[in-house]
Design a protein around this nucleic acid. Structure first.
Lengths: 192, 192
DNA sequence: CAAAAATATATCAAACCGATATATGCTTAA
DNA sequence: TTAAGCATATATCGGTTTGATATATTTTTG
């Protein structure tokens, strides 16, 4: 999905500035399934303006820097719902933490434990943010999306906490030591 | 994390061609937490070769096109473990499905139900792939990463199936109809 | 037997991220 | 108090990545 579409989608709910859109995608109610940076949002809004899919009004507040508040046009709504006809692509999940964990047995065992602890507390934070948003929200579809994120993060938290217990019960005896140390080939080659 | 690091990481386990690396990241045991396309992998391998972090050997098999099989060097291993000193960034999750679902109440109700059904079957497929990989795998860290993916996808499946039941028990009466139809502002503006 | 899919390398435009520049007001701690 | 840091706000730019495409051969499938 293009950032164009994300902008149209957000603006279909209410008027927003580029700054606001970025906040929603980075910290707000969209952040658990979307991402977009200034470097893609501002050009996208400029392009959408040229195509008359959005318009903007400069709002100069006393004090604060002036805002460009964007609104979606009728043509914009049509373009959005046209895009929604195309079936959505698959979910995408990227985890640097899991990549790092692949080398858990090559790191000092304390190092991996630290990563685990940190991940657990990050997950708890994420979870409490999502739960709070879920309590406040009374827009059905948004609640559905928040629930999805909560379910996912609860599962992750449970998994990590369970693992930590197992890990700690093997104090210092190399939890990850390979039973068969010569399977580097087989373990990776049989992919698909 | 850069594709460079992904390549070094995979090559630290065993020798691979660019094609193999891409398969691992797209369909294989890495695909549930990594992603990389040819357009980033081949340039990365070329760059790593120039820096003597990897070497390659051209293997011409009878029939099949020739392969460039890459191996990590000692300098490459050192560079990899140097990178692993930097704390990992946060997990990233992107879901076009969840974005689409935000407009569930603006689509014909059948449309959203179709998306749900499709997502459920995709999740089941993903899950059976991960479970199979988990059964075969006896590398501790990889099993940990697979378990993480399994836990996540199980939670998603449970959530979606539970939701489908609730959704179907409200046949045709507009499950997502807003109780308060004028809260487009509040629902989005209170982000963070 | 022909069509499609898999194997394999490689490149390119378009999209996107992350960092940075610029400017102002508000909050907070030495 | 006053400097530092943070939040608000727009915008651009270099470098990374994606997704599509080109090319060529073999294997599988209908």
């Amino acid at each position: 999905m293009h950032v164009r579409t994300l902008c149209l989608g957000i603006l279909s709910f209410c008027d927003k500035s580029g700054y606001d859109i970025r906040k929603l995608a980075a910290d707000g109610n969209f952040s658990h399934f979307c991402e977009a940076s200034y470097g893609s949002i501002y050009p996208a809004l400029a392009q959408l303006t040229e195509e008359d899919l959005v318009t903007f009004e400069v709002v100069a507040l006393d004090g604060k820097p002036p805002r460009k508040v964007y609104s979606i046009t009728q043509a914009g709504r049509e373009a959005l719902f046209e895009t929604l006809q195309i079936p959505p692509g698959p979910d995408r999940f990227k985890s640097e933490f899991l990549f790092y964990s692949l080398f858990a047995d090559k790191l000092p065992s304390n190092e991996f434990r630290k990563l685990l602890i940190r991940k657990i507390s990050e997950t708890k934070e994420k979870l409490s943010g999502l739960r709070h948003a879920g309590e406040v929200c009374d827009h059905g579809p948004s609640s559905f999306a928040l629930g999805y994120g909560i379910a996912m993060n609860e599962a992750v938290l449970e998994y990590l906490e369970g693992f930590l217990v197992k890990f700690d019960s093997h104090q210092g005896d190399g939890f990850f030591d390979q039973k068969n140390s010569d399977l580097n080939q087989t373990e990776l080659s049989d992919a698909r």
